[in-house]
């Protein structure tokens, strides 16, 4: 309080007060930039530097300038490991992420809309299962039995369905909450204008769900892209590797190639980073709208 009063006093004198305020905002700005540099850029620089070192140097794990730049050698080594396994893994991860997130968005938007708008005796049952999906942990071996009996085990289709299923409950809750904020009058107006249920959903409701859709896409794409355990258990086999699984190529208890490991991490970090650069406005908007309306 006293500090504020002290700062407020000089403002009345005009010039000196304004400079003081400007200095203060500058200081705050600089401090926050430095802080964010530390939190976000320093780890990234560390990854980059370690990825540029030779194996002996990288094993120190120190924040130093590389003595010999081996960035290109490491890149080639990582890309050619196991006959280009990593390129294959990128394709797999991309397919997995895009398709499973697409399924999640479309299906959960429909379910969320219906759960919110239509009152029926089925609602409590559906709600129960949605909550159960959030609470009950998935068991590995029985899930594999189900997949085996459907002949979906060891296939990308099987893993996509698993990822979509595991993410569905969370998405449905988000959509259901968001649909509540859309005025029912809009639906009624569309119905009076002669729209059928399908057209009502796709042309009137879905565009209005855009903010929460972006939230869901961002959250789930990150979750699926970064998932390690599900691909490990449900999609064994080298040709099925996803990017997170490739990290283990360079790491073991008694011998690790830190330079190659960090190069791999660098490569894996790039796609989400590029996505963020292109879509950051929508992502931030989607996050905040999701946060307020949720």
């Amino acid at each position: 309080m006293t500090a504020q009063a002290g700062l407020a006093a000089p403002v009345r004198h005009g010039r000196p007060g304004r400079t003081l305020r400007r200095v203060r905002s500058w200081i705050i700005g600089i401090v926050s930039i430095v802080l964010s540099l530390f939190v976000f850029v320093v780890p990234f620089v560390f990854i980059f530097l370690t990825a540029s070192k030779t194996a002996p140097e990288a094993s120190n794990l120190s924040f130093t300038w590389p003595q010999h730049w081996a960035l290109w050698d490491n890149l080639v080594a990582v890309l050619t490991t196991r006959d280009g396994l990593i390129v294959r893994a990128f394709v797999n991860s991309a397919v997995l992420t895009i398709v499973s997130v697409a399924i999640m968005v479309v299906v959960s938007a429909m379910v969320g809309y219906l759960l919110q708008r239509k009152r029926s005796r089925l609602n409590p049952i559906v709600n129960f299962f949605v909550l159960a999906g959030l609470i009950v942990p998935p068991a590995v071996v029985p899930t594999i039995w189900v997949l085996q009996s459907l002949e979906l085990f060891k296939t990308m289709a099987g893993l996509i369905l698993i990822e979509a299923t595991f993410g569905l409950s969370f998405c449905i809750l988000l959509f259901r909450a968001f649909v509540a904020t859309i005025p029912r009058e809009l639906d009624e107006a569309a119905v009076i204008d002669g729209a059928g249920p399908v057209r009502l959903f796709f042309t009137v409701v879905l565009p209005l769900l855009r903010p929460v859709m972006i939230t869901v896409v961002v959250v789930q794409a990150v979750a699926v892209f970064n998932d390690f355990t599900n691909p490990l258990y449900f999609l064994p086999g080298d040709e099925n590797a996803t990017v997170q699984l490739t990290l283990y190529n360079f790491q073991s208890q008694t011998l690790s190639q830190w330079n190659l490991l960090f190069m791999d991490i660098l490569l894996i970090t790039i796609p989400p980073l590029v996505m963020y650069i292109f879509f950051n406005r929508q992502i931030v908007a989607g996050m905040t709208s999701g946060a307020v309306k949720g």
Binding site: R82, V140, V141, I144, W145, Q148, F153, T229, L232, Y233, P236, D238, L245, Y248, N249, S252, Q253
Partner: peptide
């Protein structure tokens, strides 16, 4: 190939039992 360590142990058992 598959990872070693605790994850690897679990995965081995999973693969054998399925």
């Amino acid at each position: 190939t598959q990872p070693a360590g605790t994850e690897g142990d679990n995965l081995m058992k999973t693969k054998l039992s399925t």
